[in-house]
Design a protein around this nucleic acid. Sequence first.
DNA 1: CGTTTTTGCCTTTTT
DNA 2: GGCAAAAACG
Length: 771
Amino acid sequence: MVRLVCGVAFRFNHAPMLDDLAIISTPAMTPHTMPSYLADLNPQQRLAVETVDGPLLVLAGAGTGKTRVLTTRIAHILLQKKAFPGQVLAVTFTNKAAGEMRERVEQLLGLGAQSESPSSSSGVWLGTFHSIGVKILRRHAELLGFSPQFTILDADDQHRLIKQLMAEEGIDNAKVAGKVILSIIQGWKDKGLTPDKLSRDVSGEEGAGAMAARLYPIYQHRLKTLNAMDFGDLLLHCLTLFAAHPQILNEYAQRFHYILVDEYQDTNIAQYLWLRMLALGHRNLCCVGDDDQSIYGWRGAEVGNILKFEQDFPDAQVIKLERNYRSTSPILATASHLISYNKGRLGKTLWTEDSGGEQIRIKSVWDDTEEARFVGEEVETFQRDRVSLSQMAILVRAGFQTRSFEERFMTLGVPYRVIGGLRFYERMEIRDAVAYLRVISQPHDDLAFERIINTPKRGIGKATMEALHSHARAQNCSLYTALEAMTANGEIKGKTATTLKNLLADFARWRDLKDQMPLQELADQVLDESGYRTMWQLDKTPESSGRLENLKELVSALGEFESLTLFLEHVGLVTEVADAAASDEMVNIMTLHAAKGLEFEVVFLAGWEEGLFPSQRTMDEKGNAGLEEERRLAYVGITRAKRYCYICHAANRRIYNQWQSSIPSRFIQELPHEHVQTLDGAIYNRRAAGPKLFQKEIDELIHQHVDRLKQKAQAVAQASPVPAASFVKGQQVFHQKFGQGIVLQVEGDHLTIAFKHAGKKKVMADYVAKA
DNA sequence: CGTTTTTGCCTTTTT
DNA sequence: GGCAAAAACG
């Protein structure tokens, strides 16, 4: 057995208790009747499963069987008849995780039921925070001033709405972007702050914050008028509901005898409060998480919730799962060593019985093209060695990095898939089609109606829309109602009136058909009669055929739903169309965030360069906390690998179409050399020679790069007319204060220059010399 | 009113 | 270099 010790970790070991556990913790059970589903667990896992009553915190490192513990625990509760399925609440972060968990519980119940009648997990409340929030809110919507059929807004709806409100309030969208306002409001919602609680906190703030504070109550008010909620509301309104109606909180608190939470390190404050309200009574709360894998701080997640758990429940049992079943020991050692640079960890020490295994491989490349070429070659080599493509993954920091890999795999003819890129339900054509369905289901869904009133083009312009809006506001009615009134009383005239009357008649007809024909037929008919499908058929841009395909897929997806309402509910909560086949023979390309919870035989970690990873922006915004979150992201990346882990960094990267030279990520230098192997040309691993030499080599690399840029710049200068200024794009320059840099942009005397050390700056040409 | 051109921002990460 | 919003044009 190999033990890898690092960091401030302490370890506790229950191994001696192994044989006693089953007897001690569940007296009703004797060893020979111990259910098979417990037999394969290690002592800590089994303790976590069998410690059913009272608060329990499971700190589960990467690859230690976290999901297994959760699913087995649910099965155990049900099979031991501790609770009926409907009395168990299990919360996850993604729909995918919820689905997998349900499947595995189902399996366990099938196995464990033995002679007795098989139980089912179908009654278990198992879902994401948001889906469970919706379920609760639909039942009590009236108490909050909503109707039970409230709609759930997607990001696009939210954006359009906030822009509308800003226009009404006379706030210039150019000065403070709607997106910024939204994200501030979202942040408050993540903290459980309603507008009224806010006023004390943020009254005299500057700029965007003040704008957001002003708009927040207006936004919430408008949402209520629209009978709509955004994602944050699904939790926030639950909190309001529970606070205002203790008897309802009680109902749920008593109903759920056992509460389980997955990925607890990613909960935000609103979610924490939500859990706390539900669990404080019976205290049967089991949270599973890994502080080292907390990577959603930017979305309001608070690792601190783990610490709060022990404050709220001082008697909580804490169990650490540290035995890793996934990775080889060099991979674990590398990940552990890297994460030990973070302060303030709870500390875990992963270990494995697995010995041997390949070192981490580090590759230096010139640019993203070479990076993709290198990874492509390795992928093909593994493929020849019979490693399935689906067992290989390329993990990147930011979405735009996937492009060069896609291009490379396309030319190689290697099948690949990008996970989490453009989501199905976020595509324009899908949102349009769904908007039609939304209006059929809920004519007063103004946001949906506005989206499609002129799609396809019906000659409805700004003027008509403004008239509609003002009428609706004056009458305090929906746009749909306003339109009905205005076409009837002649306020809208001429051709516009005719087309709009037709549209209203169409909707009325479709609404009648809604309950008379299968959903798929209805959708087909709507798409045809509205002219929406025709619009794309006439479109001759290259993507139109893909859009028609997507519409087809949408219609076929509709087949799985019993009613329009159920379908729309699904769309509101789900971003991804059911992931067809995870076992397909394809290389996986995705962001590090999307990779959490997954595992692959071979993992390529691309783009480990300062500024990109760790992300400059994160470090600027959140300082050292941001850096530590980036490091956790690196930890997540490495621990995805079962057997082979590659790390690449490029000397040059194109950002905004400008070449920037980059130095290797500091994370590379934080890897333990004994477990790291440098492939040809890697420069950082000669640290033995001292940091000076290291810097010198980086400089050399940059020089090479600059030379190449010079050549390129000359070529460009010859090909295109020389600008009036004496400086040219791509030119290498020197500034007294900022040092060496490259000209990005020339506007008269003003130069935008990317400096090697000082970053991007705007500078007067007079202060700059040609280098 | 609708289409084309220009600008301007942008690349984190997502339920 | 790409995409979305604003501006300019027909």
